[in-house]
């Protein structure tokens, strides 16, 4: 059947859009293809994907793209305006701002990825356990989640950094510890809708332990909503990290962190606008990219919550 269908169409596209998929793989690919068509129809979401893709590419190939060292000062070249040699000008220590922006993508990605890697699993674990076990486990875990949800996040992050000392790792920890509660809420809500499903009962009858059920069969169903939410939160995480950097509490000099670059460029704002403006534009573009991508993903993966 499927051979007939695929030979009558034109190669890959027909294989993907076949109405009678011959294998599990073909069905999955077909589903992904239709999701992609939905996603690609949204031009803004596509723009978001391109921005995020560029961010990753620039971070990966930073040494090739940079035209100078991001941290070595050259005091003979201080505060030069943008030119052919220095595309975005130079800062107060004569460092090439373009190269610092390029290397700064690595720090931004580092923060975003680490926060997501710490906060999302914590939220998933708390939320799915609460939803799956119910009863007092649910009460206690959700009470703790509510407490953290009611906290002022930025101020709490500030207090954590104050105690741990400034630094990018501590900033990441402080942001992560204040950003898991929404994931727990979402994961719990998803778990509640499937915990009584027949297939969960079937797995339990086969003798699977609670953890096996949660990790192997509940968590995978929650991940798409969590991914949407994490992507939407990325912009907030980037802005918070940049804010901590701006206050001097995030990445420390001479690291080319964008928030810290704005902070040090602030003194020269009146006469050398490029010092503070360009890192700000970089932060803005990357946050915008994640917001657009998140909105697009939400429409495709989680159509219920959009309008």
């Amino acid at each position: 059947m499927s051979d007939l269908a695929s030979s009558s169409g034109s190669g890959l596209k027909a294989w993907l859009t076949s109405e009678n998929p011959g294998s599990h793989l073909q069905a999955s690919c077909s589903r992904a293809y239709y999701a992609w068509l939905d996603f690609a129809a949204n031009r803004l979401a596509l723009l978001g994907l391109i921005i995020v893709g560029l961010l990753i590419a620039v971070a990966a190939f930073a040494p090739l793209l940079a035209t100078a060292s991001p941290i070595a000062p050259d005091l003979t070249q201080r505060l030069l305006p943008p030119s052919a040699d220095y595309w975005f000008g130079t800062d107060e220590l004569g460092r090439d701002i373009y190269s610092r922006i390029v290397y700064g993508t690595r720090l931004t990605l580092y923060v975003v990825v680490l926060v997501a890697v710490i906060a999302a699993p914590v939220g998933l674990l708390v939320g799915t356990s609460a939803g799956y076990f119910g009863g007092w486990v649910d009460k206690i875990l959700m009470r703790i989640t509510d407490i953290f949800l009611a906290f002022p996040r930025l101020i709490l992050a500030l207090a954590f950094v104050a105690a741990l000392g400034p630094g990018i790792e501590n900033a990441i920890f402080a942001i992560a510890i204040t950003s898991w509660p929404p994931y727990a809420r979402i994961a719990r809500a998803e778990t509640l809708t499937i915990r009584r499903a027949d297939y969960i009962a079937a797995i339990r009858l086969q003798g699977a332990s609670s953890w096996r059920v949660i990790w192997g069969h509940v968590v995978p169903l929650c991940t798409s909503s969590i991914i949407v939410r994490v992507t939407l939160d990325m912009a907030g995480i980037i802005l918070t990290a940049a804010g901590l950097g701006f206050l001097g509490l995030g990445a420390q000099p001479p690291l080319p962190e964008w928030g810290a670059m704005i902070s040090s460029g602030r003194k020269f704002l009146l006469d050398q606008w490029w010092l503070a403006s360009i890192p700000g534009i970089a932060i803005f573009i990357v946050s915008l990219g994640f917001n657009l991508l998140g909105d697009g993903l939400r429409d495709v993966l989680d159509p219920k919550s959009g309008d």
Binding site: A235, G236, L239, A242, G243, F246, G259, I262, R266, L269, L270, W273, A276, S277, P279, G280, I283, F284, S287, L288, N291, L292
Partner: peptide
Amino acid sequence: GLLGYSVPVFWLGLVGLLLFYA
């Protein structure tokens, strides 16, 4: 709305000061 969620507030403040004050 999208701009509001994507702009770093401290940067917007600096640019605002530069433009509307200076």
